[in-house]
Write a protein that binds this DNA or RNA. Structure first.
Length: 416
RNA sequence: GGGGGAGUGUCCCGAGUGGCAAAGGGGGCGGACUGUAAAUCCGCUGGCGAACGCCUUCGUAGGUUCGAGUCCUACCUCCCCCA
């Protein structure tokens, strides 16, 4: 597995980032001899990235740390077309305004993981709308389109999936791979970029880019894909009941993010420590080797380290401390989610069902009712037996009321 | 253009003789057991309501009927066969 000369390939391979590589030895040589410029493309289909994209971001981070230059390519252009890879139905087209809004919202996250400056390894943020938006159709077909064989395109997994299942693949989407391939060539011309990385579902698209590059006379280009991260139980990473585990702080607090990692399955601890923290590998091995209940210590470290990368060390420590107080001492931590309620309303008495809805712990009064019947709701750690109950100022403990759904989710109510 | 088939609880897949808030899975949430894990077992899984109950829901819009997911008409979308 190891035996790489370059720090880049050595690190990526030993930490489990590499799923496939087009010419690992060639890339290793290149990376050992000087800075390599590499990019990963990001769709602008949502206002935030979620943990599913974290592998890609970490890949770029390691790339930069080992002395190379990362490019985050925003798919401002390609998102207008829509990537059919891995989807068996086409998505709703997003409006240009939506795409722009998403793009702006995504940017902030990258700056936490990468250093953007003008130095030789300074990261670049580029938008493929810069060139895709102004393409001339005829010129594009003559220059780029002639290098694509429809025969081969039809054999691509992303296309075949749709055809085999009799699902529609629009001509629009059929062009996606052409545009992405062209991106690679264009980025090579503009920045000397020779490596494209991405999730394993992007393999076909990336290799197409390499191919197009050869036909259009670029230098040798390279591909590396990362494994699709699923939990040991087979579930896709990043989706929870509350929705995706978002990276933007306003959509997922540091505390909730910490909790997400804290609840990692035992069998995933080693893999996740390697992928989502920067702890040295010997330390990762030591932590992953902890048996029985001790593995919980490793999970806490995983949670704190992963949270620190995204939200900063202070917020991570704070989240860890809040969790410790909440779960190990049974007291309250100050990073728990909080809602405010007016003193007047409290004096009048507030129905518990509505309060749990307001706290965001349940979606509706009906759901709250059901949870009460199932014994899932607690006020100040006392199981709620009566759905008609109200809370008042008398329930304040040190100025707060603690609402809980299940063992793990807590929201504090404060007067304000 | 002609003929045939399909669209179901807005998470997904899927049964459904005119009485249906609609079978069954998966997923999710909660409970028990644990280590804030996994596995297992149990409960819940449209909204409002303290409650009898009321409202909304089966591609869309009309119609027949005491009553429509189910029957009729038109339309939309998709699939298959023929041209």
């Amino acid at each position: 597995m190891s035996g790489f000369k370059s720090d880049l390939m050595q690190v990526l391979s030993e930490r489990g980032f590499i799923h496939q590589a087009s010419d690992a030895a060639g890339l290793d040589d290149l990376a050992a001899n000087g800075p390599v410029t590499a990019y990963i493309g990001f769709d602008c289909t949502a206002p935030s990235l979620h943990v599913g994209s974290l592998v890609q971001i970490m890949t770029l981070r390691w790339l930069q740390k080992t002395g190379h230059r990362p490019i985050t390519l925003m798919g401002g252009g390609t998102t207008r077309v829509g990537d059919p890879s891995g989807k068996d139905e086409s998505r709703q087209l997003l409006s240009y305004e939506q795409i722009e809004a998403n793009k702006l919202s995504l940017r902030s996250v990258f700056a936490k993981f990468l250093v953007y400056d003008s130095g030789p390894t300074g990261a670049l943020m580029i938008d493929n709308a810069d060139w895709l938006g102004s393409l001339n159709y005829i010129d594009f077909l003559r220059d780029v389109g002639r290098h694509f064989s429809v025969n081969r395109m039809l054999a691509m997994d992303s296309v075949k999936l749709r055809l085999d299942r009799d699902h529609e693949l629009s001509f629009l989407e059929f062009n996606y791979m052409v545009l992405q391939a062209y991106d690679f060539v264009e980025l090579h011309r503009r920045t000397g970029c020779v490596l494209q990385m991405g999730g394993s579902d992007q393999w076909g698209n990336i290799v197409n880019g390499i191919d197009l590059g050869r036909r259009m006379g670029t230098a040798q280009l390279y591909a590396v894909t990362t494994p699709l991260i699923t939990t040991a139980s087979g579930a896709k990473m990043g989706k929870t009941a509350q929705g995706a585990v978002w990276l933007n702080a306003e959509m997922k607090s540091a505390y909730e993010y910490w909790q997400f990692w804290r609840n990692t399955e035992d069998a995933d601890v080693r893999r996740f420590l390697a992928l989502f923290t920067e702890l040295p590998m010997p330390e990762v091995e030591r932590l992953a080797g902890l048996g029985g209940a001790e593995i919980n210590e490793a999970k806490k470290i995983l949670a704190t380290e992963a949270t620190a990368l995204l939200h900063g060390r202070t917020a991570a420590d704070d989240a860890a401390e809040t969790a410790r107080r909440t779960f190990e001492e049974g007291t309250l931590g100050d990073a728990l989610p909080t809602i405010a309620i007016s003193l007047a309303a409290l004096d009048a008495g507030v129905g518990v069902l509505g309060l749990f809805v307001e706290a965001g712990l349940v979606a509706s009064n009906s759901e709250a009712r059901r949870q009460v019947r199932g014994g899932g709701l607690r006020v100040n750690d006392t199981p709620l037996a009566d759905e008609k109950a109200t809370v008042s100022a008398a329930d304040l403990v040190d100025g707060t009321i603690k609402l809980s759904l299940g063992r793990k989710k807590h929201v504090l109510v404060r007067v304000g």
